[in-house]
Design a protein around this nucleic acid. Structure first.
Length: 877
DNA sequence: TTCCTCACG
DNA sequence: ACGTACGTGAGGAAA
């Protein structure tokens, strides 16, 4: 029989530190549990043990180390976040039917040792899985040790049997104990012999075999005088250490290794647990279904099909008096579900034919206070049918986003689980088959009703919490109105020049082919240049170029690396150019050609309002927020985004330094505010201050450094990254930052305060009350905490800037309408707004746009926006 | 799917 | 000593 015995604490620990802190909807921290299970399943798949046992330390305080008073003081405890995940892990293991082994007073190590010894004696083979190198002393007989190590988030496994161990270390596994007795182990609080390090210890063992051997030959000439004195003085410590380092292999365990129960999964409990933890892929792995599970359900609703137009209008009339009308309206507008008390009324477009548009028009005529989920998609569709949807008073997706912007999604089933602990069936009303009147309706209708019920429950909860958290204005005056603006922008789309785009692509192609040939020639053979793996092999093995140490899973071949070795071989600059061109070709030329609407020949992006952690928008399908601009060639692409005809222009206005202005305002730093008030070039002004020279004497070099620091400050700076960015030593960067912060004491104070406030409150906010929770600030893990601190510094800045441009967008749109102009907003790129305007409105629209952007919010460092007009995006920027 | 790379603010 | 900028989305390769 093959037994796998796992050091639960060690693997859990690795999982915890390997992955960034995650919490699920219930607020359960889950990363360690997840990582642990992932490791466990992977090992079970690969090793196929007959039985698995997981060992845990029972209590840190009962370690045998503690018998030595001197050694216990600095023993590190388990971080709280991890401790919180321990019981969950054990619950899952129990549900999986995996034997757990714990014994008060013993470390998991000792349990591993004891179990492996017993298995060995019984003639079984035993794989010990742990992250702790100490356990390698267990290797021998039928016992192998699999060492799990996590580097850069990548987990690797290395199995040691006696031979493998000997090859690597040059002595027998059991001698690890002797080695530790000599050299000690600071992480385990084993003192060893003071003054003896790894080198000496290895030499001693090599010469004398064992600790005992060393002391038996203490006068041997191979031991140097200094070492001898140290050994003599440290003899007691060596003996203690020997004992400390020895894993106890005869723990009195009741566990009967010979008669382990077969693994028996408790499906119901497992499903419950995995659902709570939101580990969907594991649920899939075990093919669990929730049928036998009793998750709380929302009240049952009756479903009623609305069959004719009259009935539909009567229903809507009767709903007009309602406080709120809960409606499920899919993007395709193929069906609608309206909740009325305990009845879900379902209307299918198919049943109404031409009258369907009348029904939609009535539904959205503004007389029904509609609560929707993800309304933007429906609004866009309605706009595209020439309607003017009104009456949307709440969107649960946006509300849930404001309540916690860091979730990975906000679909209705997920919210139902988080807000009502209810399970909702999957439902895709955008799939025409689902809303077809033909066949299989029952289930769909039931599901729709349940979704509507959940919508109501979520609304009640979410609306309340929006109030409580002080986000009413943000929600009702910024995000909700913005929804309509975004829908209009999406529906409007942007005109493009497909022919020129294709021509540009062909031009790229010629050059790409050329480069490909040269690269193959340089490499003396064909390979896939797009494959970082193959490229790495060619550059660093075949051509023998020096690989600048960057390596994760192979060689790193990114721009930074390639630029450093560009001089070394003509292939490198060619690869750099190849990369540039293929990026332009595939992502932009081909990518954009694919998404030109066959209906109107324009490109309609989708602005995501519920994605970013900071409150920014994002753009997808296609992403129009990352159209190249930084290189001249890439910038050419902007010539393809144009005004639709000779009578129109594009107007592009962007905020000047909005984030730094926000920083100046939030931090109330006098000097920075003054600089902005006087309209100074902020980077130059900073340089003048930092270098103590008059503004006129600031060199481009000085300005550029300060520009980097200004950026860094906004991101939550560190000396390392700044050093990397401006090419100075880390120390110089550190001093530079210090000087900078002394120059702007207000900024310094803000950076300190925000971290503290964030830690105390558990979240940070923007000036408009947008909130981001930051549990990382309390983490004991340095990296995680540092990340939290940078985020705490950055989010209020980036987020406030996002709030401001959102306000501007709503105002620009409203004012264009109010002033009866034909100009329309079509794009937003974080600090930039783009209008499509009739030429005769050009001047008016430019003024309006600049005004509304600058007046969106009054700051002590005033907002400045600059507009430019042109036929294409290239010309308007 | 996940990683790597690279485009933007 | 730790490993580093903040926020995104898309395409191609490899698993």
């Amino acid at each position: 029989m093959k037994i796998m015995v796992i050091d639960g604490n060690s693997i859990l620990n690795r999982a915890f530190y390997g992955i960034r802190q995650l919490t699920n909807h219930e607020g359960l921290p889950t990363n360690a549990v997840y990582g642990f299970l992932a490791t466990l399943f992977k090992l079970q798949d690969e090793e196929r043990p007959d039985r698995t046992i997981v060992c845990f330390d029972v209590k840190e305080k009962t370690f045998r180390h503690l018998k030595f008073d001197t050694y216990k003081a600095t023993r590190k405890g388990m971080p709280d976040e991890l401790a919180a995940q321990l019981p969950l892990t054990k619950q899952v293991l129990d549900a999986l039917g995996i034997v757990r082994c714990e014994k008060a007073g013993y470390e998991a190590d000792d349990l591993l040792g004891t179990i492996s010894r017993r298995a060995d004696e019984h003639g079984d083979t035993c794989v010990v899985v742990t992250g702790d190198r100490d356990s390698l002393q267990l290797v021998g007989g039928g016992t192998t040790v699999m060492l799990v190590s996590t580097r850069m988030g990548q987990t690797t496994y290395q199995t040691y049997d006696t031979a493998a161990f000997r090859e690597k270390y040059g002595f027998d596994p059991i001698r690890l104990i002797d080695l530790k007795a000599l050299m000690g182990d600071s992480s385990d609080n084993i003192p060893g012999v003071p003054g003896i390090g790894e080198k000496t210890a290895m030499q001693l063992l090599h010469d004398f075999g064992t600790l005992e051997g060393v002391y038996a030959n203490i006068d041997d000439e191979r031991i140097k005088k200094g070492a001898r004195t140290k050994l003599q003085n440290g003899e007691q410590s060596a003996k203690d250490s020997y004992w400390l380092a020895t894993i106890d292999r005869s723990v009195p365990l009741e566990l009967d290794v010979e008669h382990l129960p077969a693994q028996d999964i408790d499906e119901t409990t497992l499903y419950d647990l995995l659902t709570r933890l939101e580990f969907k892929n594991f649920i899939k792995r075990f093919d669990l279904s929730g049928e036998s599970v009793s998750a709380p359900r929302l009240p049952e609703l009756k479903t009623e099909r609305v069959e004719n137009v009259l009935e539909a209008f009567n229903l809507m009339d009767s709903l007009t008096d309602c406080d709120r009308v809960y409606a499920i309206v899919p993007e395709t507008l193929g069906a609608v579900c309206l909740l009325d008390g305990d009845t879900a009324h379902i209307l299918f477009a198919e049943a109404f034919g031409d009258a369907w548009n009348d029904i939609l028009r009535r539904l959205f005529d503004g007389s029904l206070p509609l609560v929707l989920h993800d309304a933007k998609a429906a609004v866009r569709a309605l706009l595209q049918r020439g309607m003017d949807p009104k009456g949307i008073v709440f969107d649960t997706a946006i509300a849930a986003y404001l309540l916690d912007p860091t979730q990975s999604g906000y679909d209705l089933p997920r919210l139902a689980l988080a807000y009502c602990n209810a399970e909702l069936p999957e439902l895709d009303l955008d799939d025409p088959a689902a809303v077809s009147l033909l066949g299989g309706q029952e289930d769909t209708e039931k599901a729709v009703a349940q979704h509507a019920g959940a919508l109501r429950a979520i609304y009640a909860e979410a609306a309340d919490r929006i109030e409580q958290l002080g986000m009413r204005k943000l929600y009702y005056e910024i995000e909700l109105p913005l929804l309509r603006v975004l829908a209009e922008m999406e529906a409007a789309g942007c005109a493009v020049e497909p022919d020129e785009l294709r021509a540009f692509g062909d031009k790229l192609d010629v050059r790409i082919r050329d480069l490909t040939e040269q690269i193959y020639h340089d490499a003396d053979g064909e390979f896939n240049i797009n494959s970082p793996k193959q490229l790495g092999e060619v550059l660093f093995e075949k051509l023998g170029l020096h690989a600048p140490k960057k390596t994760k899973t192979g060689y790193s071949t990114n721009v930074e690396v390639l630029e450093r070795i560009a001089e070394d071989h003509p292939i490198v600059p060619r690869i750099l150019e190849y990369r540039k061109l293929t990026k332009l070709k595939s992502t932009y030329v081909e990518g954009l050609l694919k998404v030109i609407s066959p209906v109107d020949g324009r490109i309609h992006t989708h602005f995501q309002q519920t994605v970013t952690a900071t409150g920014r928008l994002s753009s997808t399908d296609p992403n129009l927020q990352n159209i190249p601009v930084r290189t001249e060639l890439g910038r050419e692409l902007r010539r393809m985004f144009v005004a639709p005809d000779e009578n129109h222009v594009l107007i592009d206005a962007d905020y000047s330094q909005i984030e730094l202005r926000v920083l100046a305002h939030i931090s109330q730093d006098e000097h920075m505010i003054e600089a902005f008030k006087h309209g100074q070039d902020i980077h130059a002004a900073t340089a003048a201050k930092v270098y103590h020279v008059p503004l006129e004497e600031v060199t481009p070099q000085m300005r550029s450094s300060c520009k980097a620091v200004n950026f860094g400050i906004v991101y939550g700076i560190s000396d390392f990254s700044l050093a990397q960015d401006i090419g100075v030593t880390r120390k110089e960067a550190g001093e530079f930052i210090k000087t900078y912060l002394d120059t702007y004491p207000g900024v310094k104070k803000y950076m300190e305060d925000i971290k503290q406030t964030g830690r105390e409150q558990g979240y940070v906010t923007t000036l408009f009350g947008r909130r981001r929770a930051l549990p990382e600030l309390k983490s004991k893990n340095f990296n995680m905490r540092s990340f939290g601190e940078r985020v705490a510094m950055n989010t209020p800045i980036q987020g406030t800037a996002a709030d401001i441009i959102k306000i501007a967008m709503v105002r620009v749109r409203d004012r264009l309408l109010r002033d009866g102009l034909q100009s329309r907003l079509i794009l937003q790129v974080h600090d930039e707004l783009i209008l499509e305007a009739p030429k005769d409105e050009q001047e008016t629209a430019m003024r309006l746009l600049t005004e509304e952007m600058e007046n969106a919010f009054r700051m002590d460092a005033p907002l400045v926006a600059e507009a430019k007009a042109g036929h294409s995006w290239y010309d308007a920027k």
